[in-house]
Amino acid sequence: MIISDNRFFLSSTAGVVVERPASSKWIFQVSENGFLQGDFLQVNGDLDISVLLNGIDAKCELNCGYLLNDNNKINIKIHVEHKCSKTISNQQIRGLATGNGEACFNGTITIPHNSQKCDGHQNHRAVILSDTARVLSVPQLEIWADDVKCAHGSAIGPLNKEQLFYLQTRGLTESQARKILLSSFFNHFSSMEFDGIIQDWMAHYV
């Protein structure tokens, strides 16, 4: 069964105040030593997440995935604000896109002047499986403090031909090789909540 609604799974909200003003909008306030860990799977429409790291040693790990097909449009917006020193954030976004779908990822990391020794990571990878699907990535770093670590990366394109060839030279058919590469793609989720949905989607669209 291919799902039509978006899913989420919060595996840690220790020291986190969760607000959800609309079904597609989340605000997480993480206090000192708090840890937010959440998985989000998007198949259509908007997802808008704001994380405010308000106290020292507050940490967040957001793992997003999206599965785009037909004429669907997906819009993911994540804003992480390191409001205090020694806060850590990690956003991992993985997407598969086919059909005539359109996905846009907007990721912002803000580290104000007074927030020192922060660590912010953001990585977006997407595999495009059709000629007409489109994926856009808009990373934004607003870093005003000097003593911080911040990295972002983005890789969007078809499946890597050399990886496919390597697996085929070991005896896997092209379709087995594709499945292995695409399944491994989603191993960033902290839970196994979405495994079945992703397998079903791949069986149908890949």
């Binding site: 050399e162 390597y166 590469l181 399944s183 491994s184």
Partner: peptide, 10 residues
């Protein structure tokens, strides 16, 4: 291979 390719997650 002379230069084996990396397969993250596999």
């Amino acid at each position: 291979f002379q230069h084996p390719v990396e397969l993250p997650g596999v």
